[in-house]
Write a protein that binds this DNA or RNA. Structure first.
Lengths: 276, 276
DNA sequence: TGAATATTGTTATATTATGTGAATTAATTG
DNA sequence: CAATTAATTCACATAATATAACAATATTCA
């Protein structure tokens, strides 16, 4: 038979794919599938756990925020179920986003599960963070990061600060980069389904030197209630699939740089060019 | 026969799923379902009970006590841990606190697990809430309550808003009641171990018509870093045990009303006098 | 190419999970 | 209230899985 040996990244992809499909993978399962030793698979599990892409248990690996993954310590509030669905894409997008940040910058983090994925990876970096999202602020605050929030009303299923007071507070800040989460992308701009949150996002965009939209491809072509911004205010879009042609053309015409994150999991051992 | 053995995490998921569906699961039920020994299921029950995801009785497991730990949702570890410890007392204290509130009031909620217990019981009531605590704001916001927060820096293991900006924001509000959590009670006042949080608490006290301190008896006689307030500004103390004599005398001399919550679980089916 | 480095495989040694039956505790009933 | 039954805990044996250390192999880069 064809003795198929895979590379580390291929194995890890297979692990994550199986995991997403079945919700649980065992060491012997994958070892046989990849025709490799169990030790290697265990090391892969370790690696992926380090990145937060799975949780290890005795004998198996499971999705990181399923209830039984919370052994003793880490009771993390999961944003919601749909966050783990595109987890890999979000992780890849967050990785690229991370590389846009430089030490000692002040960055703004908007609402959304993809932005949350970035927040998770930001922990411990020497930057200042401003966020309207309660889960993000809480997560980073607990990790000891420097986080600031605007005042205002709390709203939404991923609770965030909205309202006139929040916008007023926001106007007193200035950010090096804003990372914006959106729920739709059409030919005339980025959209979101909450009017209140849209107002905040728009205000955030105006206070930033650079604006980077993070979104996964499921949102291409979707028009929601309210427009956040025209393309001209957005400097970069990070996603994991090339947008379809009409959108791509509009984006490029407006000068939006587009980064496509590959969801292949690699070591990333090398230092980033940005000094982290 | 296809006798498939499940992994621990799968069994625990099945337990929780059955529990949610039926409200009650027995050991033999699950043991047969999982084709495993009863001992193993008992150990699973222990494990899940530890996390507050179920409650054990003789012969079965049922949904956990109404307060806290509902699902794998909103509660962060440090908070959760402490909350589970004196859960009974906190629940009782929160119950008394609830009776101090009247419809359509504006109340301020400070930081702390006892105050969190109150927040949990407040859900759905027709009041406006102001809070500096991120977990509380998130919890209530997600439940659809009207919540407002001050802007400022995020800090602490139960993250909350602190700093000059927060105090400035706070000064623009006025509350019917503030519920304050403290970490110490000595003869000259209430104490807390975070200087930043103390400043916020003090400011909160000044903006309220009535100030109610919530604390459990473990904090009697403990002096922490910084004083929040003298007794004279505090109208009421709700706890679950009578304070020792020197403290009691000081409190009474300053006109602080003292409510002792009985941690005996009563029916509480009757309407409260305050209209809820 | 060859040295340096990283990855993988193998073994022996912990650690953890599970199953069994006796001892203990809690509920039930006459 | 004792006697009975059911449920639980305890202690230990066994099996499954994880870890650590080292050897072997592959990969990278000068």
């Amino acid at each position: 038979m064809s003795s198929k040996k895979f590379h580390a990244s291929q194995r890890r992809d297979m692990i994550l794919t199986s995991l997403e499909r079945d919700g649980l993978v065992t060491v012997p399962m994958i070892a046989k599938l990849c025709d490799t030793s169990e030790m290697t698979i265990r090391r892969d599990f370790d690696f992926l756990e380090e990145l937060g892409l799975l949780a290890r248990t005795h004998g198996a690996a499971i999705l990181p925020d399923s209830p039984s993954a919370k052994k003793f310590d880490t009771i993390e509030p999961s944003l919601d179920r749909r966050a783990i669905l595109n987890q890999r894409a979000k992780f890849a997008i967050a990785t690229l986003a991370l590389q846009q940040i430089e030490p000692n910058q002040t960055i703004a983090l908007d609402v959304g599960s993809t932005v949350f994925a970035l927040a998770e990876r930001i922990k411990g970096l020497p930057i200042r963070v401003f966020s309207t999202s309660l889960p993000i602020a809480r997560h980073l605050g607990q990790a000891g990061a420097k986080v600031y929030m605007p005042g205002g009303a709390v709203q939404g299923s991923e609770p965030s600060i909205v309202g006139a007071k929040a916008i007023e507070d926001l106007r007193r800040f200035h950010f090096d980069i804003s990372f914006i989460g959106v729920s739709g992308l059409a030919e005339d701009g980025f959209y979101d389904y909450s009017i209140e949150e849209t107002e905040i996002k728009s205000a955030m965009v105006l206070q930033s030197k650079r604006n980077i939209v993070l979104m996964d491809s499921s949102k291409f072509g979707r028009v929601s209630v309210a427009r956040i911004s025209e393309f001209s205010n957005i400097n970069m879009l990070i996603t994991e699939q090339t947008p379809p042609d009409p959108l791509l053309k509009s984006l490029k015409a407006a000068g939006v740089e587009i980064l496509i994150a590959s969801s292949v999991v690699t070591k990333m051992k090398k230092e980033f060019s940005n000094g982290f």
